[in-house]
Design a protein around this nucleic acid. Structure first.
Lengths: 155, 155
DNA sequence: CCGCATCCCATGAGATACTG
DNA sequence: CAGTATCTCATGGGATGCGG
């Protein structure tokens, strides 16, 4: 296999190339899972709630039950858990006010605010291509069914 | 609660604000899960392998076993599954060559290439703040332990 | 009001063995 | 080579009830 050319890029494929370069860099580092940012840092996007919570906190500090009401269907258990993990990563800070009954406020840290920019781009991409992807899925599923029934009728 | 001001932004808080605005827009739509792009489209970031596969395909078309070798620890089962789901979403296309034995090539679609830009930004963020987050985690865990032992010794 | 503990189920994902 | 099939186990996450 010929070596990939790292320079000589005249196309508009820059993000494509930086992604590819990044990937190869990890490969050459032996892909140590402990050092792979994708695996170690991007977990919170994966889980069901973190992104929504971060976005709701983008509007300003929120109290526990405010977030409960803002984020649909989240349970207290999962909200607690997710907030803890965001706090652990330093994206969210927790402030307890000794009122009666006590109230707790969550807000984005500097780091948490900094992730909103790339995150929002991705969410923007998702919104932009939402319809396209939905159609792609429907078409794919229809084909799968067609092939299956086609195989059946051929029997 | 006073209405948030959507204009009148002199700070550098633009992404923060667009995220907040987007979030409120979803809220006002009743947060129909079927219409929430975060929940419906961003799943593939969540799963363990999609991001890595997309990044490896950023370097050009790859065959099944090439990806197996490129992505560490992925099993054939999970690679098949993940590729199917990426294909279903229209991010990846599959090309079968009737050689002997048959070979199959995967490549990014136009849509797949388009997601690489926002995705790469996020990955870049992850790389940039990897060390910070790692430290935040260690400190958080240390505090948790301190508090626990502190509580114990106080008894 | 905020959060923890427990129980329980659905899904994710590895290991292994088998096919066109 | 490029998958499928099956088994199995770990994790995610909902429901509920208690406690400060």
């Amino acid at each position: 296999m010929p070596k990939l050319q790292e320079s000589n890029l005249t196309e508009t494929a820059v993000p494509l190339d930086t992604a590819a370069t990044r990937f190869r860099a990890w490969q050459e580092m032996g892909f140590d899972a402990n050092r792979c940012p994708v695996r170690n840092v991007l977990d919170f996007i994966g889980d069901k709630w973190s992104t929504l919570i971060l976005m709701s906190l983008a509007g300003g500090p929120r109290r526990f039950n405010e977030i409960i009401r803002a984020v649909p269907d989240i349970s207290k258990r999962m909200l607690t858990q997710t907030l803890r993990s965001l706090e652990r990563d330093g994206l969210v800070t927790r402030h307890v006010f000794p009122t009666k009954p006590p109230s707790v406020e969550y807000r984005l840290s500097q780091l948490g605010r900094s992730v909103l920019e790339p995150l929002d781009r991705l969410v923007g991409w998702a919104e932009t291509h939402f319809a396209t992807i939905t159609r792609a899925r429907q078409q794919f599923d229809a084909n799968v069914i067609d092939e299956a029934t086609g195989a059946l009728t051929q029997k």
